[in-house]
Design a protein around this nucleic acid. Structure first.
Lengths: 370, 370
DNA sequence: CTGAAAGCGCTAACAG
DNA sequence: CTGTTAGCGCTTTCAG
């Protein structure tokens, strides 16, 4: 277990082990890689030599010949968490100076992790990849230069493929990656179909669940706080909700658009309450906004769920942390992320495999808020 | 910009570019790497050839000779977020089967990201590393096998060094890495000093700020919800708080230990309230627990801050999201994480540089809760 | 079943 | 300033 047998400080190589074991590099390579057809006795000798020398295979050297890195890029792409600034994220690349790139509250990465959603994606991906010896490299692609980084990173062979969380419809990354023929899987259906696998949630079905629950509960003056409408998840949840409500005789539903943040949920709830003081039910596009709605409702003297019932979406940690705990539509993010990883690994093992998509069904989780 | 000039599907190599430009590989390498001493005219020719062939340097090949990967491991180590199970995280490595390692609510990775703290660390690290072309590889080291993975990952030269978030005092990883002589920087001072750099917060000073604020506000029946006492950050905050209170004539302070989660904060607050119904001030070891405390206080009819003042710690997103918004002690996590990254890069540039530590000073952020 | 030999694609002396 | 020449450490035919 020691790094002995080498005068210089350099790490021991196959050559060193071979010499120590009195065999050839090829043989050592075979036993290290568990290739069969090696005499058990020699196998043992080699193992000893490996442990005596403290040998560890050099990954760069191995990658060079196998053309595999056992790493995948986990990229968070234009997420719609971006501020409603003009342009389209085509900002300049930040300087390389000392003060540059220091993450204030406003940096893209900071905003990304402010939403529990991404932590769940990471969890699902990592838990699937880890037992398989694959390592995730974290990347963010909020601007043109960052997208180029992702593409060249993959083209350099620094990672075997990419897992892309791309919630924003206008995100150009999926197309870029697909055109370049790079192995990738998306979280969320791409705006324009491409030869690329993805996982997604049946958002409309989830919204239907929420609508039916509110209705079954006896709510009759229902409003909704939608997510950003330029994000498919936001738009689909709204559409599904309106659709179901219409089918049940409520063709018009007041809607206030939010930005998937608690703060925006609070603001939206304020607007809704001002315009419709008598409402008795609210469906929010995600749990963060639902939490904000609860706060505002209480501040205005409304009891939840007695006076106003509230249903969220996602079943993130925020749902259970809310007071009262939120009734919400569960999006199995961890499972979806794991599936995304599985699809990528399948594709890597079998490059010709056609692109596929897996759509998950949401479920209603009833807690105290509705 | 096209991948032309190569009959087979293989990626173009330096050789291809050299041929296209009518120069040697060495020259192409020079211009690609921006080495001076290359005739401007030839430089231009080469650049053209690069773009015509669609050349991208192969990272494995480059790493093999430079012995650099431009990647660092970002590892979350035994964090004390672990359940209070016996043993010491020496559990078996999970199977490699299909069902194994699928991240339920209970997996280590899931628990890690349930705390906003880690997202902030990632933010700080990524924002510092990105402009410098370094990529973070996410790793978790909650058990013995996982720690070995980290060590061998580094020894394989898969990453140039490690950024280790190790909050738990008993965590063996810092020592393992230090002994192996691998470049690394810690977030939080190691239990036993080692030749390894770290960043940390002056926890006691932060607790002092909280105590003084509560006192200045007029609170006289003060209690505290501490973090896990086997985590230095938890113990130090408690010690600092008690110390300051004692100095101000309050030698005895009721304390309930929590686990840095909202839920544990709720339970602790219940206990405190039962034993000391008349309390008028609470200092919680972090914002999550403070949020839980606020919930329980309200449920018990106490107004915050009128009846009971609450001070949190960290100034994480939870502080602003809480109703009322939390007065809290700010830990500049993003800055600390960036500094951690800076220390590592310095060390990589100058291997002989001695280990250093940087201690950050907390500040009080006054909001509505106290 | 084992060894010899040929590279993978790139950088870095060292000559010229 | 540019080209030639060695490898970096490993896997993988191909012989034996």
């Amino acid at each position: 277990m020691t790094d002995a047998l080498r005068s210089d400080g350099a790490a021991p190589t196959l050559e060193d082990v071979a010499r120590a074991a009195g065999v050839s590099r090829a043989t050592v390579s075979r036993v290290v890689n568990g290739v069969r057809n090696v005499d058990p006795a020699i196998q043992e000798t080699v193992r000893q030599a490996v442990s005596v020398t403290g040998y560890t295979p050099n990954r760069a050297a191995r990658s060079l010949v196998t053309r595999r890195t056992d790493a995948v890029a986990l990229v968070v792409s234009g997420t719609g968490v971006e501020p409603a600034a003009g342009g389209g994220g085509q900002t300049e690349r930040p300087g390389e100076g000392d003060a540059a790139g220091r993450g204030g509250e406003g940096s893209f990465t900071a905003r990304v992790f402010a939403d529990p959603f991404f932590g769940r994606v990471v969890t699902g991906v990592v838990d699937y990849l880890r037992p398989r010896g694959i390592h995730p490299v974290l990347m963010f692609a909020e601007a043109s230069w960052a997208r180029d980084d992702v593409v060249s990173y993959l083209r350099q062979g620094s990672a075997d493929g990419a897992l892309i969380v791309s919630t924003h419809a206008e995100d150009p990354l999926p197309a870029l990656v697909a055109e370049a023929g790079l192995p990738a899987v998306l979280y969320a259906r791409p705006a324009r179909p491409a030869r690329i696998s993805y996982v997604d949630l049946a958002h409309r079905d989830g919204a239907r669940l929420a609508a039916e629950h509110l209705l079954a509960r006896g709510c009759r003056r229902i409003a909704t706080i939608s997510g950003p409408l330029d994000i498919p998840a936001g738009a689909d949840r709204l559409a599904g909700f309106q659709e179901t409500m219409a089918r049940h005789g409520h063709p018009y539903i007041p809607v206030a658009e939010g930005g998937f943040t608690q703060e925006s949920g609070e603001a939206a709830m304020e607007r809704l309450l001002t315009a419709h003081p008598g409402l008795d039910g609210v469906f929010a596009g995600n749990d963060l906004m639902a939490t904000g709605a609860c706060h505002v409702l209480r501040e205005h003297g409304r009891r939840v769920p007695e006076d106003v019932a509230v249903v969220g979406f996602d079943d993130s940690g925020a749902a259970a942390a809310c007071r009262p705990p939120l009734t919400t539509v569960r999006q199995p993010v961890e499972d979806m992320a794991a599936e995304m990883a599985r699809l990528l690994l399948d594709r890597l093992a079998e490059p010709e495999r056609p692109a596929t998509s897996v759509i998950f069904e949401p479920t209603l989780v009833v807690r105290a808020s509705a």
